[in-house]
Amino acid sequence: MNAHKDIAMPSEASSDQRGRQKLDRETVNTLVVFGLSIVLIVCSRFISPALGSWSQVLTVLILASFLIILSFGQGLVILIGGLDLSIPALITLGGVLTTTWVGTSDAGVWYMLPAILAICALVGAVSGIGIVWLKVPPFIMTMATSIVVASVALGYTSGTPRGGSPSALLWLMKAWFLGVPVVIYFTLAFILFGWLLQNFTALGRRLRALGTNRNAALIAGVSVNRLELVPYAVSAACAGFVGMMLVGYSNGATLRMGDSYMLPSIAAVVIGGSSILGGSGTFIGTVGGAILLTTLGTMISAIGLSEGWRTIIEGGIIVGALLVLRGEFLTHIGNRMLTRGK
């Protein structure tokens, strides 16, 4: 028996060491992303004194709240090795149904808004069914879902969404409490919820295991097929809720209100340290990525660059951030520092 223990101990030690290395890498990624965000905010003072002010920081956090909530769902999909390209259409669906079914009357708002989120989640689950049981690649399936939903929204509104925002959403997006917008308190609560769910629940551990090794998760008794539907349903519900938030923010909906969020939702997750192949990543890192991208977008808008230059600069910084934040790069830098120390 002692011999068996001696044989098992090195394996367990190496497994723990790999886990600590992975945890340390994710922690470093998160710290670097938040550090870059702070540097950008400080440097923005050189562009315009108003950019680094407290009011501007609050504005950045309000704008980042959309991307943070959106990236939570996208992050869960990426965690299992998938990709959700239906996000823009689901944002539009959530916004359009909110203005047309609820509007400014507030009649039944407390059951209509959850019903709209349930519809969005159902659409996401349909995408998951196509991916899991019909074996359609996530890229193709979610893109097809996006086209269908966008077409339905276009036909339903006849090209012009009507209606305004219910007072509950206006309060969420416009009200202040103790000198801070209410939506920031809500976003902090959402971040805490997402962090706990992804890191300290059985669902979070199973999703990570599914993304790391599907066959191993299957052997361990995880109901892989049903589990794979969850991230797509959650991502769709998050997108639908962001559509509601945008309705409260602008007091209306448009058919293209979600177009600018698809690539940033992916970039925030990957910049935050998640592997695009699945199996690793933290929601806190994703939050940092969302704040970084929002700060960058605010600075570019302040400079007054054209949309073309803005896209080029954003793309270049995203690629640069991905190169810098890769685990291999950080490991290489760490090894070089250790070598010089010797």
Rank of each mutant, 00 (worst) to 15 (best):
I7V: 09
M9C: 07
P10W: 03
G19C: 10
R20C: 06
Q21K: 10
D24I: 13
R25M: 15
T27Y: 08
F34S: 03
L36Q: 05
L40G: 07
I41F: 14
C43P: 01
R45M: 15
I47T: 13
S53T: 14
S53H: 06
S55R: 15
S55F: 14
Q56I: 07
Q56G: 14
L58A: 08
I62D: 11
F66Q: 14
L67S: 03
I68Q: 09
I68L: 11
I69D: 02
L70A: 12
L70Y: 08
G73N: 05
L83T: 09
L83R: 05
S86T: 05
I87Y: 11
P88S: 08
P88C: 06
I91G: 00
G95S: 02
G95D: 00
V96Y: 04
T100F: 01
W101V: 10
G108P: 01
G108C: 08
V109P: 03
A115S: 13
A118G: 12
S127I: 02
G128I: 03
L134T: 02
M141I: 09
A144C: 09
I147P: 04
I147R: 06
S151Q: 06
V152N: 02
V152I: 13
A153S: 15
L154S: 12
G155F: 11
S158Y: 12
T160L: 12
P161H: 07
G163R: 00
A168L: 15
L170D: 15
L170R: 13
A175W: 08
L178D: 08
I184G: 05
F186C: 13
A189G: 15
F190N: 07
F193H: 00
L197D: 00
A202D: 08
A202V: 11
R206S: 11
L207S: 01
G211H: 05
T212I: 09
N213L: 08
A216T: 07
A217G: 09
I219L: 15
G221K: 05
V222L: 02
S223Y: 13
R226G: 13
E228Q: 15
E228N: 08
L229G: 02
P231D: 05
A233K: 00
A237C: 03
C238T: 01
M244F: 01
L246H: 00
G248P: 01
G248F: 00
Y249M: 11
A253M: 10
T254R: 10
T254K: 10
R256M: 12
M257V: 05
G258Y: 00
Y261Q: 07
P264H: 04
P264K: 06
A268K: 04
V269R: 03
V269N: 03
V270N: 06
G273H: 07
I276W: 07
G278N: 07
G279Q: 03
G279T: 06
G281Q: 07
G285E: 08
G289K: 03
T294W: 02
T295R: 09
T295I: 14
G297F: 05
I300G: 08
I300K: 11
A302H: 03
L305Q: 13
E307L: 14
R310Y: 10
T311H: 12
G316M: 15
I317Y: 01
I318P: 04
L323E: 06
L323P: 00
R326N: 11
G327D: 10
F329C: 10
L330D: 01
N335V: 10
T339L: 13
T339Q: 15
T339I: 12
T339M: 14
K342D: 11
K342Q: 14
